[in-house]
Design a protein around this nucleic acid. Structure first.
Lengths: 205, 205
DNA sequence: GTCTATAGCCAGATAGAC
DNA sequence: GTCTATCTGGCTATAGAC
């Protein structure tokens, strides 16, 4: 008879609380969400929450920590891969866009914590989110310049231009009421930017 | 002896409360800010706040209403004016950028309300903020296409590209710790986008 | 690990005098 | 218009049994 673990290390209650907390924090904000709401939605009770996460802040930090972990793993994969820089950059942005759209709740939570008021929530190293995105896109721009695909001399501005379009596309998905431009809209707008980055075009700068 | 108004219509208390509420809402969020904090920072008392604004929600809505009013006035002015489309678009974005950077608290508040969780705050027609910005920029893009400055056939994508760069520049100012690219960085990144919009460049689309 | 029950606090809002 | 004093309710967090 195989050994069973003496106790469940991650019981259903813990996962249920994480899920309903993510949902509520994303919809009502950290300060706007009561612990009572979270445990009711999860079908649990308050002491269970405090047992697993020690405090409301601990729960919040655990959600963000998990989100950061998953995001970094995906970003690492998407920065690899062959092909020319324009294709790689388009693939990176396109797949990140899909990933973000499939996890809008997390994106809303992190975005709010990045640029919004901290709402009394605990501090967290959010800027790494932003910095790693810039680094991932900047890597492809560097590649493009090195290979002669993109014009030389304006790496930072090109990265900002690409990142700006990507960032806006994501934010439009966050707006309520179907303002989003979708992946097709993102590709079209990125093509406008690429048009201004390609080497060989008349550079009147 | 000249007549004095029978009573102060907008006494100092009212303005002081509006200012400290803007400061606190922007720093701690709507739900994260207590009425007690607001009136203490303003050197007033709670009944004064409730006399002038009826409720915490009423105070919040009044702040946003005033912000929206000032913003629309500025946007209307900046969409007029002569010159070619590229110059007009650069001026619109540059001056809006300066305006936003001088009012970062309001921008943070509105941005949080636009894309962030509502935090229990009352509903407000925030999307008009976004829509009017898009309309203002789109007007100049239309002008540029009409005059033959910009390539034809991709108005929406061009507008998104310009708006995306502008939006990112503003958001980087919102991040804590001097991540901003400044007005020069905005201009440089916009030039990358313009490079891809100009008619006459080799269009390999 | 999970419960019931509750402590202790602070929130938003108001009554009524001036 | 502004005050002091106060009401009512919800909040986070915990004690202690199982």
């Amino acid at each position: 008879m195989p050994e069973r673990p003496p106790t469940h290390r991650y019981p259903d209650n813990r996962e249920a609380i994480l899920r309903s907390a993510l949902d509520l924090f994303a919809r009502k904000g950290y300060a706007g969400t009561a612990v009572r709401e979270i445990v009711e939605a999860a079908g649990a009770t308050k002491p269970v929450l405090y047992y697993h996460f020690k405090s409301k802040e601990g729960l919040y930090l655990e959600i963000l920590r998990q989100a950061m972990e998953r995001f970094r793993a995906d970003l690492t994969v998407l920065t690899r891969g062959g092909g020319d820089a324009e294709t790689g950059l388009m693939r990176l942005c396109g797949q990140l866009f899909v990933l973000f759209r499939e996890n809008l709740q997390v994106v809303r939570l992190v975005h709010a914590a990045l640029v919004g008021p901290p709402q009394g929530g605990p501090p967290f190293d959010f800027k790494r989110f932003h910095e790693e995105l810039v680094k991932g896109m900047g890597w492809w721009v560097d590649e493009g310049i090195r290979r002669g695909e993109f014009r030389d001399g304006d790496q930072a501005s090109m990265t900002i231009a690409v990142y700006g379009v990507f960032s806006l596309a994501v934010e439009l998905e966050l707006l309520s009421g179907e303002c989003g431009i979708g992946r097709e809209g993102l590709s079209a707008a990125m093509n406008v930017v690429f048009e201004g980055m390609r080497a060989g075009d008349s550079a009147s700068l």
